[in-house]
Amino acid sequence: KSPLTGYVRFMNERREQLRAKRPEVPFPEITRMLGNEWSKLPPEEKQRYLDEADRDKERYMKELEQY
């Protein structure tokens, strides 16, 4: 499975939280809201997602080498 970027990891995590709080909001609007939230997120909060993405990318590269 391909590695996910930090942005995609953030979107996946927050999308479920936002949909639970506001189920009436259409999917494209949720994506737009989360995109704005990501762009305003402080670098230190973004870093968690970026670090997870880096670890996932390393895992993926190792799997490719073994293939």
Results as ranks from 00 to 15, higher is better:
Lys62Ala: 12
Gln47Val: 05
Arg19Glu: 10
Glu44Cys: 05
Asp56Ile: 00
Leu18Tyr: 04
Arg19Leu: 13
Arg32Met: 06
Arg48Tyr: 05
Ile30Glu: 05
Lys46Ile: 00
Val8Met: 15
Asp54Phe: 05
Val8Asp: 15
Gln47Gly: 06
Asp56Thr: 04
Arg32Ile: 04
Asn12Met: 15
Asp54Gly: 08
Lys46Gln: 04
Glu65Tyr: 02
Glu13Arg: 03
Pro42Cys: 07
Val25Ser: 05
Glu16His: 03
Pro43Met: 09
Val25Ala: 09
Glu58Leu: 05
Leu18Cys: 02
Arg19Phe: 08
Glu16Ile: 11
Phe10Asn: 05
Pro23Thr: 04
Tyr60Ala: 15
Ala53Lys: 00
Tyr67Cys: 07
Lys57Gly: 09
Tyr49Leu: 02
Arg59Phe: 09
Glu65Arg: 08
Asp56Leu: 00
Thr5Trp: 02
Lys57Pro: 06
Arg22His: 15
Lys46Met: 03
Leu50Gly: 14
Glu52Phe: 01
Lys21Thr: 13
Val8Leu: 11
Arg19Ala: 14
Thr31Glu: 14
Leu41Ile: 00
Tyr49Cys: 00
Leu4Ala: 15
Gln17Gly: 07
Arg9Cys: 05
Met61Lys: 11
Pro42Glu: 00
Glu58His: 07
Tyr49Ala: 02
Glu24Met: 07
Leu4Thr: 13
Ala53Gln: 10
Arg32Tyr: 00
Arg9Asn: 02
Arg55Ile: 04
Glu29Asp: 04
Ala53Glu: 14
Arg19Gly: 09
Gln17His: 04
Arg59Tyr: 11
Lys46Phe: 00
Glu65Val: 10
Pro3Ala: 09
Arg55Lys: 14
Arg14Gly: 01
Glu13Pro: 00
Asn12Trp: 01
Glu45Trp: 00
Arg32Pro: 05
Ala53Pro: 09
Glu29Thr: 03
Tyr49Gln: 04
Glu63His: 08
Val8Glu: 15
Leu41Arg: 00
Leu41Val: 03
Pro3Ser: 12
Pro43Ser: 04
Val8Ser: 11
Thr5Val: 06
Asp54Arg: 13
Ala53Cys: 06
Pro43Phe: 08
Tyr60Trp: 09
Ala53Ser: 09
Pro3Trp: 11
Leu18Trp: 05
Thr31Ser: 08
Arg9Ala: 10
Gln66Trp: 06
Ser2Tyr: 09
Glu65Thr: 08
Thr5Asp: 15
Glu63Ile: 00
Tyr60Lys: 11
Gln47Ser: 08
Lys46Pro: 01
Arg9Tyr: 11
Leu41Ala: 01
Ala20Cys: 07
Lys57Tyr: 07
Met11Cys: 14
Glu65Ser: 10
Arg19Asp: 01
Leu64Trp: 05
Ala20Ile: 10
Leu4Pro: 09
Met33Ile: 00
Glu16Thr: 06
Arg32Asn: 06
Tyr7Met: 10
Glu45Gly: 05
Gly35Asp: 15
Thr31Gln: 14
Leu50Asn: 15
Tyr7Arg: 11
Arg15Asp: 01
Pro23Tyr: 00
Glu16Trp: 00
Leu4Arg: 08
Glu45Arg: 03
Ser2Ile: 08
Arg32His: 04
Arg22Ala: 12
Glu58Asp: 08
Leu64Val: 13
Tyr49His: 03
Lys21Val: 12
Glu29Ala: 04
Ser2Lys: 04
Asp56His: 06
Glu16Cys: 02
Glu63Ala: 07
Lys21His: 15
Glu29Leu: 02
Tyr60Arg: 15
Trp38Leu: 04
Ile30Trp: 05
Asn12Leu: 09
Leu41Pro: 01
Leu41Asn: 00
Leu50Arg: 10
Val8Ile: 13
Gly6Asp: 01
Lys21Gly: 09
Pro43Gly: 04
Arg15Tyr: 07
Pro26Glu: 10
Glu44Phe: 05
Thr5His: 09
Ala20His: 08
Tyr60Phe: 09
Glu65Pro: 07
Glu13Val: 07
Pro23Met: 02
Ser2Arg: 05
Leu50Trp: 09
Glu45Asp: 05
Arg48Trp: 03
Leu4Gly: 02
Glu24Trp: 04
Ile30His: 03
Phe10Ser: 04
Phe27Asn: 15
Met61Pro: 13
Gln47Lys: 13
Lys62Ile: 05
Pro23Leu: 06
